[in-house]
Design a binder for these strands. Structure first.
Lengths: 130, 130
DNA sequence: CTGCATCCTGCTAGATACTG
DNA sequence: CAGTATCTAGCAGGATGCAG
């Protein structure tokens, strides 16, 4: 892992620029299901059907799509066991595991600030209707 | 993810559960424009038109929408100066600034892993067409 | 079991025009 | 300058059926 000296090298890859390549990454990473699927794979290797059950609300189509994208990005590895019926396992690659940390940070933030945000929303809505 | 030691029996905040409230937060936070707008406000207070210019590619509509959502969440404060023409400034609240860190972590990750991911994609696409 | 193809729908976001 | 309102197109994503 490269250590990140935060503010230093921000100029080369400025995500505020429209064409900036990091935007593509941020888009994928910010995807609703990506976050949850990567999280679900954080603990251990999982089968397709396991993921379908664990990530509540995801459709088969979106799970497939999300996994394919992650595989293409080299963040998830896919292993097919040619049994009958077929068994397919997914696991995070090293890159995928490295993504786990920033995502956990986000999740921690969500949990920690949920109450605060909810209160703010309630107040805001109150002011509006008043 | 929620596997922070104390999280044993907290069904309420399991983001894998469909109804989990943290999902709403993750959804907003993971939003394409939210990340960029919060980032743009990280440095200092900015005016509407400044943001419109800085966050390249965002439409006026989406900027307004994103700012309203952030304001509602209590993450951004809005100040109107009743001059002519009107001047409106946006700044991060304390909560908003606290969000800055996990977002920066994500951005750092994107920058550091961009090359790796690109290579993986190229390889993947090669295998497909072959 | 896993996953692709197809069809169909609702919402999202862009463009445009108008206002305080 | 900083919005709101309306209209529309495109596409994300659900449902279903089929295949390896």
């Amino acid at each position: 892992m490269v250590t990140t000296s935060a503010a230093a090298g921000r100029l080369e890859l400025d995500p505020y620029q429209d064409g900036c390549p990091t935007r593509r990454i941020l888009d994928r990473v910010g995807d609703r299901w990506t976050v949850l699927v990567v999280g679900a794979l954080g603990e251990r290797t999982r089968r397709f059907s396991e993921l379908l059950r664990q990530v509540e609300g995801i459709s088969q189509k979106m799970l497939t799509q999300t996994l394919r994208a992650l595989e293409r990005d080299g963040l998830v590895a896919r292993t097919v066991y040619p049994e009958v019926p077929v068994k397919v396992e997914y696991r995070l690659t090293e890159g995928g595991r490295s993504l786990l940390e920033p995502l956990r940070a986000l999740e921690e933030w969500s949990i920690h600030h949920f109450g605060e945000v909810s209160r703010a929303q309630a107040e805001y809505d109150n002011r509006q209707s008043a």
